[in-house]
Design a protein around this nucleic acid. Structure first.
Length: 469
RNA sequence: GGUGGCAUGGCCGAGUGGUUAGGUAGCGGUCUGCAAAACCGCGUACUCCAGUUCAAAUCUGGAUGCCACCUCCA
């Protein structure tokens, strides 16, 4: 089954065929590092991490870039209020972002490209648009003239008239159309600025993505992603200015947008005060639990967040870890033997079908859990074989790798190992009080001993696991 | 007002024109000394109305409700 991807541009799932058959070029709108990384960022970048991982798994070489908007109004304001510089704020929140992403097991892009490193290219680009008649300057500001670009609205499916009637913004009378957007903004007193043909100023928000994505990926590339909210105006404007400048259509072949994180069915936002940073959430929940929570809903649907949901996924994640540990341990005890692997093959097929269908991770998870059920059942009936467990393990590893779920077994700490063995000796001597005491002592520390039916001489296949990272 | 989307069992959440999603919670039972986050069994759900069809929760139309975007935002 070919990979199908929902394209916002066509509003349909399309068979995925990159421009170059072996290589996928992908650009995702990154953050403006003016505050802590929140749940919404987590969802977005986990989504595109899945896209990237699955494309790589499917045999493509993926070239993935993400931008950093390290100059903008919010950063300027924060710097002014805090008596510090835009640069130091941006650097520190960017570091924090990278740390959080690493915890979520999000693979880094090839490069995080910074807007402020590309000012010259942006100026050149704006000059080009003016020369081609798509842009005009007023008092040091440069605007893109919407009416010159015929396809305006093709991504967000909006007509200019509709946009005009619904406009909620105060209209700047100097602009030719209220919808014209800034390519270059004249500097106000005390703002960071760069010299340009139109005086001191700084780039508008949208131009950086056009300039940097085409610089690193070429004038046409495969995938451009971001949150749903970016469809309009950000991505719409990017298309206008890019296709106007390069005359190559389409600029981007597949547009992907992830759904939002909601709190009680409402969009999470600062103004509503229903805002959660990942750093805070990680104090209570393992990052892999958060990742599992994201994966349990299709990436384009809104996902409602609550404490209870994370608790449910904590249980599910523990179960996953417990099964994996059990599998590993039993592998040391079981014998050779032929066993029918057709069910495993079926689950593999289902898993990859699900992923091929626009990255349906929620459905793919069902295959993962069915596999755990199957293996746990076989173990508990004492019918496992080396062949089966090693195949199952390989499969679980593969699934988890595609999903970015980190299930790597931690080395067993010395005290755990010692106590586990001690407990087994106690059990063999039928000193059950002592055995139970040991198990209870560790379960209080969130470390669990689980017995399985396999034994070999005096040793037993009791395993341990610690569901935290 | 315009545009897009959603309504599924206690909760979360996939999906298909007729056959078990899955997770989680609950109930009953089982094994192993016990325990388990283990095993076995248990829920015939799909907003409402009309239509298409042999058959619709799945397609069409309408209604109702909810959400998002149209302003910085993942």
């Amino acid at each position: 089954m070919p990979l199908k991807i929902y394209n916002t541009l066509s509003q349909e799932k399309e068979n995925f065929q990159p421009i170059n058959p072996d290589k996928v070029k992908m650009y995702v709108c990154g953050i403006t590092p003016y505050d802590e990384t929140h749940l919404g960022h987590g969802r977005a970048y986990v989504t595109f991490d899945i896209v990237r991982r699955y494309l790589e798994f499917s045999g493509f070489e993926v070239e993935y870039f993400q931008n950093v908007t390290d100059i903008d109004d919010k950063l300027i304001k924060k710097a002014q209020d805090g008596g510090t510089t835009v640069e130091s704020i941006a650097t520190s929140f960017m570091d924090s972002y990278k740390e959080v992403m690493e915890k979520l097991n999000v693979l880094p892009p090839k490069e995080y490209v910074k807007a402020t490193d590309h000012i010259k290219e942006m100026i050149k680009w704006v000059e080009g648009l003016i020369a081609k008649g798509f842009a005009y300057e007023i008092d040091g500001d440069v605007y893109f003239e919407i009416d010159k670009f015929k396809d305006y609205g093709k991504l967000s499916k909006r007509k200019k008239e509709d946009l005009l009637s619904g406009a909620r913004v105060a209209v700047d009378e100097r602009k030719k159309s209220p919808l014209d957007f800034a390519l270059w903004k004249a500097a106000k007193e005390g703002e960071p600025s760069w010299a340009s043909p139109w005086g001191k100023g700084r780039p508008g928000w949208h131009i950086e993505c056009s300039v940097m994505s085409t610089k690193y990926l070429g004038e046409q590339f495969d995938i451009h992603g971001g949150g749903r909210d970016l469809i309009f105006p950000h991505h719409e404007n990017e298309i206008a200015q890019t296709e106007a400048e390069t005359c190559k259509v389409p600029w981007v072949k597949y547009w992907l947008h992830n759904g939002f994180v909601n709190i009680n069915k409402q969009k999470m936002s600062k103004s509503l005060g229903n805002f959660f940073t990942l750093r805070d959430i990680f104090k209570q929940f393992d990052p892999m639990v958060v990742r599992l929570f994201f994966l349990s809903t299709h990436y384009r649907s809104p996902i409602d967040f609550s404490d209870g949901d994370l608790k449910e996924h904590s249980v599910a994640f523990r179960r996953l870890i417990a099964s994996v540990m059990k599998m590993n341990r039993c592998l040391e005890f079981v014998n050779e033997g032929e066993i029918d692997l057709s069910y495993l093959n079926q689950l593999r097929e289902e898993f990859f079908c699900a992923m091929d269908d626009d990255f349906n991770t929620a459905l793919a998870l069902a295959s993962l859990f069915s596999l755990l059920d199957f293996v746990d059942g076989v173990i508990s009936k004492k019918q496992a074989t080396i062949q089966l467990l090693s195949e199952a393990k390989k499969t679980v590893d593969k699934f988890c790798n595609v999903l970015g779920l980190n299930i790597a077994a931690k080395p067993e700490p010395d005290d755990v190992k010692k106590s586990r063995e001690q407990r087994n000796i106690a059990r063999s001597k039928k000193l059950f009080n002592e055995a139970d005491e040991i198990r209870d002592r560790f379960s209080k520390k969130d470390i669990y001993f689980i017995d399985t039916p396999y034994t070999s001489g005096t040793s037993t296949s009791t395993t341990w696991f610690d569901p935290s990272l």
